Simulated assay, not measured.
Amino acid sequence: MTTKKSVSLLTPEKQQEKKLLTIDCVKISLLLILYNLLNRIFAVLFFYVAYTYHSGKFTLSYSAVLSYLKKQTAFISSTTFSMTANLFITLMSVLVFGIVFAILFRKRESSFIKPRKGTAVKGLKWFSACFVINILLSQLISILTGILGQNGVTVPTSDFSIHQPSAIAVIVQFSYVVIIAPIVEEFIYRGAILTALSPYGRGAAVLFSALAFGLMHGNIPQAASAFGTGLVYAIIAAKCGSILPTVIIHCLNNLLANFSSISDAIGLEHYETFMSVAEIVIGLVGFMVLFTSLKKLIIDDSENVLTPKECRRYVFTNPATIVYMLCLIIPIVKSLVQANS
């Protein structure tokens, strides 16, 4: 039996599939590394622009730019500054990413980036279920971080509250958090990854997608929560054959998550009552969807050339995958160490 299994792994068809998977895995991993690098490059460019705008001067010295901006505490700590930076960096980076992706995977027959008829309705259906999953994960992570905090471990988190509220700050934050970020993240972490890897096995592609999406958030609480929701998002996209439903889910999820800070900034009254009622209704619908449709999230890769186990092994032992994952893990570990040093 062992001999037959070993021989079957070496069939020409499987060898060819493994070769193609390895190549595409390298391409998508390097492309994701490029995206991270582009973020850094455009961040530097944005700082130069911000320096020139605020000081009225121009310099090629990056150290001088950083030194100046660090002194402008009110300027750089404002939501307008941080969200404008995020918008600029994200849009410029995804533009380059999209061009390179289109070149590398131009011959791919099935693309998850293209919208498909009827998938928008599925997005609305699964939004409530994703909302419930997100709430449950958030509560669990909150409990765990609380326990760590009681034991003297500081866990870095992100702050999305609006500092120095203004109409511009609200508009910029809404534009980035509720619209641009979800679309870009779905394009990269679902659309691109699933397009590249799902032909060899949707299960491995979904897992890669969820890990990349989780780890890119940069801190443990968000990474854990994003991994869980990202897993569900990727499964939904894989099942629907399009990221359109997950774009809708992601936008709505971010809207609800940031509704309080936006409402506070614009002075909206009695929004707590509205939010409480909305969350209860969405939660009840979500539990019903999960109860009746959970089996639909099961992915069947039995018809693929490579078995699910083989596909996962080839993807996650790929040197490019390992390098990319390390690029995401190391900053998280460093921030955790720095917070507790």
Rank of each mutant, 00 (worst) to 15 (best):
F160W: 13
L31E: 01
Y200G: 01
A43Q: 12
T3R: 15
V44N: 08
L20R: 10
L215N: 01
A102P: 09
K122H: 15
M1Q: 15
G98L: 05
F88E: 08
T79M: 08
L290V: 00
T79P: 05
A196F: 03
T307A: 01
Y314S: 02
F160L: 15
L284P: 06
V178Q: 04
C251V: 12
V155T: 11
L31M: 00
K125E: 10
I329D: 04
L137A: 11
T79V: 09
V289E: 02
T145Y: 09
N151L: 04
T229D: 10
F316N: 04
G146K: 00
K5N: 13
E269I: 02
L31H: 05
E272G: 11
G267S: 09
L60P: 06
S293R: 15
S128D: 01
M275W: 08
F160P: 09
E109W: 09
G267M: 09
Q139R: 12
F42E: 03
S302Q: 02
R312S: 14
L306W: 01
M216G: 09
L148D: 04
A257M: 07
L328T: 04
W126I: 07
L231H: 05
S158F: 10
I299D: 03
P12R: 15
Y48R: 04
G98Q: 07
L34G: 12
I282T: 02
F42K: 00
I280F: 13
S138P: 04
A167H: 12
L87H: 06
P165E: 00
T84N: 11
L66G: 14
F101W: 05
A43C: 13
M92D: 12
L136T: 09
K125F: 07
Y189N: 08
T80R: 00
S138H: 08
N151G: 02
T79G: 08
Q173A: 13
K18F: 14
F97K: 04
K239V: 08
F291P: 10
L231C: 07
S63V: 13
L32Y: 03
G56W: 13
I236V: 14
P115G: 06
E109V: 11
M92R: 14
P199A: 00
Y51C: 01
A204G: 03
F88N: 08
P245S: 10
V281E: 10
K239M: 08
T229G: 11
I133E: 07
D300Q: 01
I23K: 14
I33Q: 07
